[in-house]
Simulated assay, not measured.
Amino acid sequence: MKLLKTDLKNNVLQTMIQLLDTNRAQLLSANKKDLEAFNKDDQAMYDRLIVDDKKIDGMITAVKEVMLQDDPIGQTISHKLLEDGLEITNKTAPFGTIMIIYESRPDVTIEAAVLAFKANNKILLKGGKEAINSNKVLVEFWHQALQTHGLDTSYIQLLTLNREETQEFLKNPSEKLDLIVPRGGERLIQFVKEHARCAVLVSGRGNNFLFIDKTADWEKTLKVILNAKTDKISACNALDKILIHKDIPDYEKKIKDLEFTLIAKDVSILVDSETQNILKDQALVPSEAVWHEEFLALKCCIGTVNSLEEAVSKINTYSGGHSATIMTNSKEKAIHFMENVDCAAVYQNASTRFTDGGKMGVGAELAISTDKLHHRGPLGLKELVTNKYYVFGDGHVRV
């Protein structure tokens, strides 16, 4: 793939900013069609689907932030001059063609495309049918921006395939795919893993845990839990499971306080058998499978554990590998928790809602990766590259 000059890429992005700003009415009208056709029973997905002026402002900010970032391509990772005179430089390079499959969120059509393009990749956007009108308009804007600067529209393509067509495309793509990112729930991830014939980078599944240690500041704990659970239930960084140490001072009083605080915010509660000894009105977690589940709803599980080690073990068994928090005033316990919990982001005394490219200083993100190859956490511009070795010799042969 031809490497584009940084100035050319930034000029395309500047044009895209102008198109988003001056064509708000067209985008809002398209989104209105999507909202009217959507079944509002799935509140989390409906929330993700909404585009308003604030959301458009966010899209513009995302493009602007990426435009202002350094070009990630051709950056030197390492340079060595060997004793035999061979010169070896390792540099960043584009992936090639990336496919992202996502549901509902039209802003992903902006964030994914701007990151892929600035990193000199092609991107195939497979959005959900619920956002088809919004996505078509956004990709039209992208194509206008590309064509304004003499570039082919193939850099950013929208795929309008049904499930069966997507399955066939994954098995037999019409062009070489280098990376696929399924951004959504467990069913989508498994579907892509089953049918894809190239590298798959898993993203999106939350099921995040918070552990309340014996030394936790209770007022801060309730504040963090409410933010993590209720601030945005449709986000993959929302809280689903709460574990509390059985030896916390005033255990019975505090766990009832937690129950009251959650119910006051319309959060439904499931509990394990130990917790139900105190919270007698709450239903038992019906099966082990629920501990694996990402809720995307005003719903949570509360469990009681005997130790920090038990909490770590439970999180590593059931979580989605996304985010986990420990509420504790002990730095030693926090470090132990953070070193041993197997998640992309681990916290002490902070909400899981911070696992986000913008909040973590990364900027716009393609996704939150829960994979360990090649990157974990927010996939920003600097992470949307691979590498290439440049080896300079003078008739060198290996002996």
Rank of each mutant, 00 (worst) to 15 (best):
A238W: 01
H375A: 13
K280I: 15
K122Q: 13
K253P: 06
V51G: 01
H322I: 07
V137Q: 11
D70K: 15
D250S: 13
H322Y: 04
I269W: 05
F117Y: 08
H79D: 12
T92M: 03
A289W: 14
V63R: 09
D342C: 00
P173L: 00
I132Q: 10
S154G: 10
K193V: 08
Q69W: 13
Y390M: 11
N329H: 07
L49D: 01
A113M: 09
M327E: 11
T230D: 03
L68S: 14
I77W: 04
D21V: 10
V108L: 06
D52L: 00
F169W: 04
D70R: 15
H336S: 10
A324G: 02
M338T: 05
V362P: 07
K171P: 01
S323D: 07
N10M: 06
T92G: 08
E309L: 00
W218E: 06
P286M: 02
N277A: 15
G395K: 11
H143T: 14
E83L: 14
A112K: 10
D47C: 00
T92S: 12
L13H: 08
S203L: 03
G74W: 14
M59K: 13
G393A: 04
I248W: 04
C301F: 03
G321K: 00
L366W: 03
V200C: 04
A216R: 13
S330Y: 10
I242P: 02
D34L: 10
K254D: 09
Y389H: 11
H375P: 01
H375S: 15
L125N: 06
S319L: 05
K64Q: 13
G380M: 03
E288C: 04
L170Y: 06
Q157M: 07
H322R: 01
A131Q: 12
K5Y: 08
I225S: 01
T160M: 06
I302N: 05
M99L: 13
I233L: 01
H322C: 03
K64E: 10
K40D: 07
A196R: 03
M59F: 12
V285T: 14
L373D: 09
A37N: 13
G357V: 03
Q75S: 12
L222T: 11
L258M: 02
N31H: 07
S313A: 10
E164D: 15
G185A: 01
E36C: 05
L179H: 08
R187H: 06
K256M: 09
E383Y: 11
I244N: 08
S134G: 09
Q75L: 13
K223G: 11
L201F: 05
E36Y: 02
M338E: 03
C343Y: 02
Q144H: 10
A44I: 12
L296V: 07
D47Q: 14
F141L: 15
N277E: 13
A30M: 00
E175N: 10
V137T: 14
S319Q: 06
E36R: 06
P182R: 00
D47E: 12
L298C: 02
L177D: 06
P286A: 01
A113P: 03
Q14G: 12
G58S: 12
S234G: 11
F392V: 15
T89S: 12
A235V: 12
L177M: 00
E83R: 15
A62G: 02
K80E: 11
D178A: 07
E111G: 08
P249C: 03
N227I: 12
